[in-house]
């Protein structure tokens, strides 16, 4: 299940002015890969994910999944937003079950699948809670479980831990690594946090800002078995520093003194 972006551009109009959010972005996401896209704000990261999800259509270029052009959103590309996309009136288990309720599955089959993903994301204990009763980290677990239960070819993560405190964020990073290794799902994640990208990714793509375009890409030659201690190793710190330099170099800051 290869995801391929070929020369993808995205223009939009803002206050009557033509703006280019993405400019000729070409990317290939291979099966089983964990690809992190980093870039400052204005680099079109979220636009990129929205295009892959099929929520918007590129004004130029083509996006294909396994050779088939993407024509709209679907459960083969599960999406997790930063915040606020849970169904507030549904309990945790019914949030997770949403995508399966749309399919011709009997209750037992649906329940079995929901149970597995609730356990995998550590939500079994709060399955009957409402979203507002959960912490920010738990809410993101629900969003991840809800996308994964549909068995997507690629899981799209749009700064999923951006609104969490540092400790919770690290827990979630370990969790998503674990899930990625357990399920073998291909993951495409955008973030502005270089440390996060290096820790999670098998490969990192740096986007330049205004308009968003690919500035650099590098594979992350860290072992598959990563713990929080990995973040203190010299190899990790060197990678992080060099990628942070790339992000900074490709970010035209609007603030000067």
């Amino acid at each position: 299940m290869t995801l391929e972006l070929v020369d993808v551009s995205m223009d939009y109009r803002l206050h009557g002015q033509q703006k280019r959010a993405l400019d000729g972005v070409s990317l290939t996401v291979s099966p089983g890969e964990f690809l992190c896209v980093v870039g400052a704000s204005g680099s079109g990261k979220s636009t990129l994910l929205s295009l892959v999800a099929g929520l918007t259509t590129p004004t130029g270029g083509e996006i294909t999944l396994d050779g088939h052009p993407i024509t709209g959103p679907g459960p083969d590309r599960g999406l997790v937003f930063q915040t606020g996309s849970l169904y507030p009136w549904r309990t945790v288990e019914r949030n997770v079950a949403f995508g399966l309720e749309l399919l011709a599955l009997d209750t037992a089959e649906r329940g079995r699948r929901v149970d597995w993903y609730l356990a995998e994301t550590g939500l079994a204990g709060v399955r009957r809670s409402l979203p507002r009763q959960l912490s920010g980290g738990q809410q993101q677990r629900v969003a991840i479980a809800r996308a994964l239960v549909c068995e997507p070819d690629v899981l799209l993560l749009d700064e999923p831990f951006g609104a969490l405190d540092v400790q919770t964020k690290e827990d979630m990073q370990l969790l998503i690594r674990q899930i990625w290794r357990d399920t073998g799902t291909t993951v495409l994640m955008v973030t502005h946090d270089v440390e996060e990208a290096v820790f999670l990714g098998t490969r990192v793509v740096v986007l330049a800002s205004d308009p968003g375009r690919v500035a650099a890409e590098t594979s992350i030659p860290l072992p598959d078995d990563r713990g929080l201690a990995t973040k203190r190793t010299l190899a990790f710190l060197n990678l992080r520093a060099s990628i942070e330099d790339m992000v900074r170099a490709s970010h035209r800051s609007g603030v000067t003194r």
């Binding site: 999800a53 099929g54 929520l55 937003f81 169904y87 995508g99 996308a147």
Partner: peptide
């Protein structure tokens, strides 16, 4: 009804009528 809720429903496989019935109306 938040846009993100509608968008996410489409990515979970819901069709227009289902988004209306299962998301817009209950919210």
């Amino acid at each position: 009804v938040p846009r993100s809720l509608i968008d996410v429903s489409y990515t979970l496989g819901a069709r227009r009528g289902e988004v209306l019935r299962k998301v817009v109306v209950p919210h």
